[in-house]
């Protein structure tokens, strides 16, 4: 029974994150993602040239409401984004993803300038490519993202999130100041395409776009994101260019929302130790979506990051077609 191989007419675009000195940035290295023309890890029937990468999620406010297990894993760095980023990269993360939550009036309402200073501190602390998003309030994020884009022009940051309401501002900022953007849609493949079309109509080069199709964590909607992502990958391979970008997913924040990731063994003795359960809840949210085609995994727990990284390595080994 020789292998039955399937050739694709389309492929995922190749996207570079970060810029080194030669290319106008200050990063010690860049990361390249995408470029596949086969289903995930089926490298015998196409090319799967760039591995999925893991971004550690860094918040600019201390995450006091995080589960204890997660806080314990990071030790004392949680109040200090630069120290946190440094520890994450030294611990195995390929890059960092900063959420500027402090811009939200409910979180102190720091100014766009102050937010940019946080980004500067992180950029100085780590050599890796850096992703930055605002606080989630569209009106405020327009100012914050524009400021960050301008202040670090040429760094090729990964900036987000560009949704239906604010895509024009984020896209313009990325185009002018040479960054890559995250096009974000709410678990709906048609809206995803629509936003990408709008972005491409602004003449944004599509090899500087990553898509966030929104995900649900394990046990809570994972199946929807799994199928949206899988359909997107299959559509891309069949030649749909408006879906054919690398995919980013917020694994950590979704996984750790689950009751099963957080609940203490004393309250749910039949669920086993929470220390193990939370890490695995995040791990499996990640490993299952790898099979649907995710390219950037934004994660929280250092142990989960390392387990998933090892899986990506193992899955990427060349296959011998029978």
């Amino acid at each position: 029974m020789p292998y039955l191989t399937e050739k694709s007419s389309g492929s995922i675009s190749t996207v570079v994150l970060g810029a080194t000195k030669e290319n106008g940035g200050t990063r010690g290295y860049t990361l390249t993602i995408g470029g596949q023309n086969s289903l995930p890890f089926q490298n015998y029937e196409g090319v799967d040239p760039h591995r999925a990468v893991i971004a550690a999620e860094i918040l600019d406010i201390e995450p006091v409401s995080w589960p204890d297990e997660l806080k314990k894993a990071w030790g004392g760095v949680l109040g200090d984004p630069a120290a946190w980023a440094k520890k994450a990269v030294e611990g195995g993360a390929d890059m960092v993803y900063i959420k500027l939550l402090s811009a939200d009036p409910d979180n102190g309402g720091r100014s766009a300038n102050d937010c940019a200073e946080t980004v500067r501190a992180v950029l100085e602390a780590v050599p890796c490519p850096v992703a930055v998003q605002g606080c989630g309030v569209d009106e405020i994020d327009k100012g914050v993202i524009s400021k960050v884009a301008e202040a670090f022009a040429g760094e090729n940051l990964l900036l987000g999130l560009a949704g239906q309401e604010n895509y024009a501002t984020v896209t313009a900022a990325c185009m002018v100041h040479k960054h890559t953007l995250i096009s974000s849609s709410p678990l709906d493949i048609n809206i995803c395409k629509q936003i990408n079309i709008l972005i491409s109509e602004m003449n944004m080069p599509m090899n500087r776009v990553v898509i966030d199709p929104s995900i649900g964590g394990l046990g809570y909607g994972l199946e929807y994101s799994y199928s949206v992502m899988e359909r997107g990958r299959i559509g891309s391979l069949q030649g749909d260019k408006m879906l054919a970008m690398p995919v980013i997913g917020f694994i950590g924040s979704e996984a750790w929302k689950a009751k099963e990731a957080q609940a203490h063994e004393s309250d749910f003795p039949k669920w086993g130790s929470e220390a193990e359960r939370g890490v695995l809840w995040e791990t499996i949210t990640a490993t299952s979506l790898l099979q649907a085609g995710i390219d950037i995994l934004v994660m929280r727990h250092p142990d989960a990051i390392n387990i998933v990284k090892a899986q990506i390595e193992a899955l990427s080994q060349p296959v011998t077609a029978a």
């Binding site: 394990l218 046990g219 994972l222 099963e260 669920w271 193990e276 359960r277 791990t283 299952s288």
Partner: peptide
């Protein structure tokens, strides 16, 4: 238990 519960949840989902 802590290892098998997440696997059971994944199976429920998919």
């Amino acid at each position: 238990k802590a290892s098998l519960l997440p696997l059971c949840a994944l199976r429920q989902n998919l």
